[in-house]
Nucleic acid binder design. Structure first.
Lengths: 334, 334
DNA sequence: CTGAAAGCGCTAACAC
DNA sequence: GTGTTAGCGCTTTCAG
């Protein structure tokens, strides 16, 4: 292994090892039959020249790629980075690699990304909303590669889906809060571009109404929630409706912000005010009070999505729809 | 735009539009000269066939890629996802795309990733440790593409670096805590594979010693810190050394865990125990008490790293070493 | 403004 | 076990 002066090719290695390019190719791919001696010579040449294979050429020739495209809405929400970890980990062991695109919760940006990533002819595609532009859907539908939609369970999936039913999850959380005797509900969150959050909110609202209760949801954020917006959202909500006894947040991060405000302002939780989140992040379970929330299985969702793609690629029969479920965490905040 | 039955090629589009492949290629790249009429026909054909360009072929032919490889240690630390956002955002506007690899803080995994990612012949490479295996360094050094090391300022960079001096940062934080009259220091964190954290710890220790104070650092974590380990780490530390009056944590997340424990256990912060973190994450500044910490410029670091690569690619003169500095946040915890 | 020929670096399929 | 030929889908170069 010494200095590389110039990009080497198979040909260089072949010449250096006094064999044909095909032999080098066979050594590289560990496929086919190469004598032990030849292999050794070739490997030595590869090392000496510092040769790194060119997969563009390889994939072009075989029409097979080891890249799997993954589009997530955001990198700053652990929900998505955890699912991504699950995907990466599973792909890794089969020699595949995740290529990540971030859509910023935008359907237009997703469309751009789909085209851009598709131009690399990935082996499979993972997307994480239910809503897609018609073009996006069309490209995905006709690409002739495995496609998985994650985090949700669409009525009409493109091909495969791995996720949970957000309506059921919202309903379960609301039902629980009702059994805990809370009555004057509020909501703080961001539903604008987060379709799953919007669905959950609708389900929460419906379930509360079914029991004869309303929910006060004043102004919603115009950006994905963080601690600060959870905090300020709760402050504004309490200004407008000081009588609330329980607040749902669109996710754990916002809920944590809310709890932080209560701790700071001396609002007793859950006696004076109950707090419910969504996701079951590690961070929400290590606060002074464990967050009451819905735990979703992000890591397993990621692994399952990747496994589905791998199975499709190897023509293994595979279930197309995976409900990964959820779990109510009866924490200490509500 | 209708159903695609089979992967289309330039040739299909050319035939459909009754022109040569070259003309289609010219339309696609907006380069060269094509008459308005021809362009219109070609675009219509592209749309009708649902053609998506094949960049493997294109990049192979031009020996140019729009992919920039980025290796970060972890996706569950906002520090790295923020820097990644900065990189992505900057690359995006120039039509480049980040391809992300996660090394899990492992030098061996990084080496694997470098080979694997290099095989796609990226336009540039971003790595985020100072420590690399000799092979990694060699491959990066000789790849003949722009390479940036981020988050640190190595003595002997591969080519370019954008980051901060962790020794100075650690020293500044320690010096501040000394001025605040804390005297019996402790340390909770994970230095094992996080080289930057290890450097900061050494700097903190040295600065305290310079003032005649020691620091008690019992057992360190064996995994990257999260709230839970920050919490349990502090608990163990206080069991062994109940007299501590100030504790440094290896990052804000661990420090937040520590603060959560104090809130829960009724330990008054900073009166009974001061807490210092590192990073200046949003989450640490929205707790019941703002964390005392060092703010680093992750987003700008990412943008700068990407810009450096873009400039190198366009042969624009560029500064190779960027000290992005840091800022002491005199919070309410110490 | 448009097209034809050659080739990017690799591999499938077949020969030897 | 190893080599030869053809070609993956695109772009470069040079004609016209």
């Amino acid at each position: 292994m010494t200095k590389i002066r110039k990009r080497r090719t198979l040909k260089d290695v072949a010449e250096a090892a006094n064999v044909s390019e095909m032999t080098v190719s066979r050594v590289l791919r560990k496929s086919g039959t190469v004598s032990a001696g030849t292999r050794k010579t070739v490997l030595a040449a590869i090392d000496r020249l510092g040769y790194v294979e060119n997969r563009m050429a390889g994939s072009l020739a075989t029409a097979r790629s080891n890249q799997v495209a993954v589009i997530i809405p955001s990198l700053s929400n652990h929900v998505f980075t955890e699912v991504l970890s699950g995907i990466s980990e599973m792909l890794d062991r089969e020699g595949y690699q995740a290529v990540v695109g971030v859509s910023d919760y935008s359907i237009a940006k997703e469309e751009e990304l789909v085209y851009s990533m598709m131009s690399w002819r990935p082996a499979g595609f993972v997307v994480s909303n239910v809503r897609h532009s018609p073009k996006t859907r069309n490209v995905l539908l006709n690409a002739d590669i495995p496609v998985v939609e994650i985090m949700n369970l669409p009525e009409d999936p493109i091909e495969m889906c791995v996720g949970l039913n957000h309506t059921e999850a919202g309903r379960a959380l609301a039902a629980y809060m009702v059994t805990k005797k809370y009555r004057r509900f509020g909501y703080v969150g961001w539903n604008e571009s987060d379709y799953a959050a919007a669905i959950r909110f609708q389900a929460i609202k419906a379930e509360l109404e079914r029991h004869g209760f309303g929910i006060f949801a004043p102004d919603l954020f115009n950006r994905p929630p963080n601690l600060a917006s959870g905090k300020s959202g709760l402050i504004r909500l309490l200004e407008q409706a000081p009588d609330r006894d329980a607040v749902f947040f669109s996710n754990d991060t916002a809920a944590t912000g809310g709890l932080m405000h209560c701790l700071q302002a001396g609002i007793s939780v859950p006696d004076r005010l109950a707090i419910a989140g969504f996701s079951g992040l590690e961070s929400g379970q290590n606060l002074p009070k464990r967050l009451t929330t819905i735990l979703t299985n992000r890591y397993e969702t990621g692994r399952r999505a990747a496994r589905n793609i791998l199975q499709q690629l190897s023509n293994t029969p595979v279930r197309l729809r995976w409900d990964m479920g959820f779990e109510l965490i009866e924490g200490e905040t509500g």
